[in-house]
Design a protein around this nucleic acid. Sequence first.
DNA 1: CGTATCATTGATGGGGCTCAACACGCGTGG
DNA 2: CCACGCGTGTTGAGCCCCATCAATGATACG
Lengths: 228, 228
Amino acid sequence: MHCHATHSTTLTEPKTGRPAPSETDLEPRIAKLFDPRQPVRHVLPDHSILLQGEPADTLYQIVSGTVRCCTFSEDGVRQIFRFAGAGDYLGFADFETWHFTAEAVDHVILRAVPRPRAEAAIAQNPSLQVALRAMMVRGLAARERHMFMLAYMPAEDRLYRFLTDLAARRGASGFTVLPMKRRDIADHIGLTFETVSRGFSSLKRKRAIEMRGNDRFRIHSDDLLLAA
Amino acid sequence: MHCHATHSTTLTEPKTGRPAPSETDLEPRIAKLFDPRQPVRHVLPDHSILLQGEPADTLYQIVSGTVRCCTFSEDGVRQIFRFAGAGDYLGFADFETWHFTAEAVDHVILRAVPRPRAEAAIAQNPSLQVALRAMMVRGLAARERHMFMLAYMPAEDRLYRFLTDLAARRGASGFTVLPMKRRDIADHIGLTFETVSRGFSSLKRKRAIEMRGNDRFRIHSDDLLLAA
DNA sequence: CGTATCATTGATGGGGCTCAACACGCGTGG
DNA sequence: CCACGCGTGTTGAGCCCCATCAATGATACG
């Protein structure tokens, strides 16, 4: 029983990507861990930021750019379980070694903080702990939502939801930049890049999306979509 | 590019379900939140423990039995993102309202603690916070592992891995009880119950598993499996 | 024995993977 | 300037795995 409506299902999330009220208040407490002026790291497209299995001795905040967080199976299949963007954090889901690999999709700028210092600050700051737990709760729910997509949604719906979620996170109306390649999208939503490409074509054909070049898109209103 | 070997891929987890050393030390601290003698709740098979959307005013520890944690899409499709068993906890991934529904698979016995009391205890106990964060980290990794399965593994491999993981969690060698129905398994690994059933038959035929009735199974060694 | 629930097995069709060809932009170097 | 290669994206043809629909067993319970 697949999801008929292309724009289907948000499960029960408040709305896509909208942080809970508590989150809005608490997020700055996490950001304070990072010195807003100091150590900044630049990473070029397709270069790795951190490697699965290596010591997780640093935490990062993404200043700008897009990061793909992925794991590789023994036979080299890549699974991107998350795209992280400006304002997101890397490293709070590990203690000793990284359980995933992070790579730059485009030019990425990071702020870094050594783990010992961060952990010490966390230990002394109860409201920071609450903020962290809230962040991880959102991470759990996001992964469950993604699991549902992988298990039950047909190809085109997966792509449509990926695009709407991305546009919602970027916030601004109008065209949204699509920093990643078709292959990256495919490895994220569990398809081949050919199927992703067909999905783009199909969505364009039925006026669900509009594209400028192949790295900018815009979602059309649901009303238009229903007419198709 | 599917996973050829039936016993394939653990990604990079230490080993199935084995808690990290830190976890072994810290887990009792979470357990201490629950009074080992007092308020116990019994839930009959297929009855609900907590409902998506309702206030999350209680935390639970599972004393015995198996719980399915699931979400429902608008059109009624069920996704079981986790089976929780004896020793597992429910409720640390929410603050105000439940983001999922928990139902008893078999007869379930729970210990409960009111959230305000638990949160107060957490706020005052730093090492408990560390334990909680470790638990949530494991939850994140488990969901990512599951995402990989849903995205890339063929039906039979999914079932085989589900069974091996279950047997590993139960620990004891010999036959393992399978508390849930085919339909539950299907909704967990993203298949239909018919395909799950065919998977059982196929695994039996090639001597990968052995069954006693249809609710007890045993995994055969990989050596035997390779010979098939 | 009749009924209900669950599991198994078969037949059929379709969605997406695979293999393959082609289009397009962009760089380099003749 | 055009040729050529290369990376990326699109489109087509064919096939296979799994969802779907359907029928038959198996077991428990009245």
